[in-house]
Each structure stands twice: as structure tokens, then as C-alpha cells.
Design a protein around this nucleic acid. Structure first.
Length: 315
DNA sequence: TACTCGTGGAG
DNA sequence: TCTCCAAGAGT
């Protein structure tokens, strides 16, 4: 008998409507300020989006751009990459870093060719099953390339949410269940809007609300930012992990692989020994590269980039 | 969960 | 110079 006479007022912090005030200003800001990146153009297609996402895992946009262009010109479809030797992918990867990504991208192209008729799959679960694709990349490809509704939670979005919603300067070191829940709660209901929100919130963190600078003066949601309204309290909690590099196996692997990348054919062991003095560490790094499938040992103390069937990919 | 895995530019 | 950190994935 007592039908509600006034619209329901939602105040719960975990309902979409509670935060919908963020959507419009961020999406509008994005429409005006989005960078013109090649993988955002229609001609990039799902394969272009996927290639860019692999390259952008832990590598800045500016360094990805030239390699992306060369990659797409050489391998415009997954099948084009799939018929190459995996070592060619590693070579073309250049100095983007984390070259296992190149191997995984090659493996993903192979799987797409064999299992999906050469087309990048649109289903999140199918994307997730490909080598090198985790929760973030699966959501990103499904959202950016196919316009689907997914929570796309990368380091930029995590930082924006930490500040705007949670009120802290930085997100936790590792992604938490609470962050995923928040990302889902913030996702607009409508598919189209959700996809735009994903790209917009990420761009905001990438160009405006960065780790080193907040740029609140130019921020479309500074008026409702929890961190700013709290007076920008400094980061508390466990120190943010800083990665060392000099002297690590990673550095040695990088030097060894650089020699192989720059050589058109197999190189003798001596050429590799020249780049690092510590024999023990050098051997350990080389073994690691071989077991990762990034280097192929040949008889006679020769080494080269892999030519054979790519190892380390899901069957 | 915490650790490994490259590289180079900005402040 | 040196510290920080950049659209993560895999184990």
C-alpha cells in the first residue's frame, strides 16, 4: 500500500549510482584530450589493439610507438606473425624490454591462427587462455577492440581510484580484491559507456593524475576527489617496491640477448662471454634464456635466437 | 603472496 | 648522479 513516492536515494558506496558522478566529466575530458595513438584508430583492429597491449605491459608509450608501427607493417594479421620463427619476433621486439612478451605474442598469434581461424577472439575467457594475456589484457582487448563491458584495472586506473575514491596517494603494491570490487562497482551499466569509461579513466591516470604529479588544476573531477578533499595526505603503509637493476641477472640477460638480436646468424660463445665478466652469473643468465625459449643452443658452442616450435605456450 | 623478468627517460 | 617508474604476466 505504501508505494514509494520519491525516487530511491542510493548512498551505498559500492553501488554504481553512488559514483556515477565521475563518469560524465571523465568521459567528456577524454573526448577533448585523448591522445591520437595508432592503436586507437579504427584501422588498427583487434590485432592492433592486442599488439599494443602486449608492448605496453611495463613499457612507456613513447618507446612503443615506433616498434608498433614496424610490427604492424610487417605482420598485419596474426597469421603473418604465426608463420615466422619466434626468434624474428624477439628480434623485432628490439629494446622494449621483457622479451618474453615477444615470445608470448608469437605464441598467441599461433594459437589464434590454429584455434580461432586467424581472428583475435572477442570472448574474455578465450583471450585469457592465450599466452601472455592476463586479467588486465583480456579485459583491455575485449573493451577497447570489441566495445564490451569489463573492468579494466591497470596501474593508471588503480591510481585514479585510489585518489579519487579511496582517498590515498597510491594504490596498494599488489592489486587487491577490494580494488577489483570497486572497479566493478564503478563500471557504468551501459556497454558503450562502460567501454568509454575504461579508456577515459585509464587516460586520466596516464596523462594527468600521474605517479609523480597530480595536476589537480586540470582534472575534471578534482572537486570530488577524496584524496584532494582530505588535503592530499602522504602515502602511508609499506614502502612502494623499488626494483634494482644494476648487477642483476636481468641486466646480464639483456646484454646477452642484445648480442643475439644484433647478429643475423648464430654467434659463438666467446661473443657472449665478452659482455659479462662474472662466469657464474653469465652461465646462469644464459641457462635462463635457453629455458625460457629465448635462446637456442647449437652444437659447437653456437647460440642463436629461436627458430623452432615456440616453447612455453599453452597447447 | 612475493618475486622475477628489460630498458631508458624524466625529475 | 641517482631514484623512480612505465597499459603486467607467470610462477
Amino acid at each position: 500500500m505504501t508505494a514509494p513516492t520519491k525516487p530511491m536515494q542510493s548512498t551505498a558506496a559500492d553501488t554504481p549510482s553512488a559514483h556515477s558522478a565521475l563518469h560524465e566529466p571523465v568521459i567528456t575530458w577524454f573526448e577533448d584530450h585523448a591522445r591520437d595513438l595508432p592503436w586507437r584508430r579504427p584501422e588498427a583492429g583487434a590485432w592492433g589493439v592486442m599488439v599494443s597491449e602486449f608492448m605496453l605491459q611495463q613499457t612507456p608509450v613513447a618507446r612503443v610507438l615506433p616498434v608498433y608501427e614496424q610490427w604492424m607493417a610487417r605482420w598485419p594479421r596474426p597469421a603473418d606473425l604465426a608463420e615466422e620463427a619466434p626468434g624474428e619476433a624477439v628480434r623485432a621486439w628490439g629494446r622494449l624490454g621483457y622479451p618474453r612478451r615477444a615470445l608470448r605474442l608469437h605464441g598467441a598469434a599461433l594459437a589464434i591462427t590454429e584455434r580461432h581461424g586467424g581472428d583475435v577472439p572477442a570472448q574474455h575467457a578465450q583471450l585469457l587462455a592465450l599466452p601472455g594475456i592476463g586479467e588486465y589484457t583480456a579485459a583491455a582487448v575485449a573493451s577497447f577492440a570489441y566495445g564490451q563491458r569489463h573492468a579494466v584495472l591497470d596501474t593508471n586506473v588503480r591510481r585514479v581510484f585510489a585518489r579519487a575514491v579511496t582517498g590515498s596517494q597510491y594504490p596498494p603494491n599488489a592489486t587487491t580484491a577490494a580494488e577489483r570490487k570497486l572497479a566493478r562497482a564503478l563500471l557504468p551499466e551501459e556497454e558503450r559507456t562502460a567501454a568509454r569509461w575504461a579508456a577515459a579513466s585509464m587516460e586520466l591516470g596516464a596523462v594527468l593524475c600521474t605517479a609523480r604529479n597530480e595536476n589537480c588544476g586540470a582534472c575534471p573531477i578534482s572537486g570530488q576527489c577524496a584524496w584532494r578533499l582530505a588535503g592530499k595526505p602522504e602515502h602511508v603503509g609499506p614502502p612502494r617496491r623499488t626494483q634494482s637493476y644494476a648487477g642483476t641477472d636481468r641486466q646480464v640477460r639483456g646484454k646477452l640477448l642484445a648480442v643475439l638480436r644484433e647478429s643475423p646468424g648464430p654467434v659463438p660463445r666467446a661473443a657472449l662471454e665478452r659482455v659479462w665478466d662474472d662466469r657464474i652469473q653469465r652461465a646462469r643468465a644464459l641457462d635462463g634464456l635457453v629455458s625460457d625459449g629465448l635462446v637456442e643452443p647449437l652444437p659447437g658452442g653456437l647460440y642463436r635466437l629461436p627458430t623452432g616450435p615456440p616453447s612455453g605456450q599453452k597447447p
